[in-house]
């Protein structure tokens, strides 16, 4: 098997982390909203925002699981990572 030269495990962890962060954020919205004088959100707003945060949090975790299966079960993501044409490549090591 070709040596794995990308860091997709890290990217997959990022996506799972976005999901966890979103779920975490949903849990503190009410606490942060308490005591605000300007820009205080209504109960309906907080409730709706929390629901969508939680929904997308689980979606991101689900996507991370699918990408994990793709990478490590189906082995379809294993290849050399390409450059991103980002314009800052000279600053980086190329392995």
């Amino acid at each position: 098997m070709a040596k794995k030269k990308n860091h997709n495990w890290c990217g997959i962890s990022f996506i799972a982390a976005y999901g966890l962060f979103t779920i975490y954020a949903s849990s503190i919205l009410s606490y942060l909203n308490n005591g605000k004088e300007i820009g205080k959100l209504s109960g309906t707003a907080i409730s709706g925002i929390k629901q969508s945060f939680i929904l997308f949090g689980f979606i991101f975790i689900g996507i991370a699981i699918v990408l994990f299966l793709r990478e490590y079960i189906f082995k379809s993501g294993i290849k050399e990572a390409g450059d991103t044409e980002s314009g800052v490549a000279p600053h980086y090591f190329k392995k």
Partner: peptide
């Protein structure tokens, strides 16, 4: 938050995700 997620997903699907440390 979702923009970060979208960009990471396509970077992985496009085979371009890589932990890049500056020289």
């Amino acid at each position: 938050i979702c923009t970060f997620a979208g960009a990471t997903i396509t970077a992985i699907l496009g085979g371009e995700f890589k932990w890049r440390v500056p020289r």
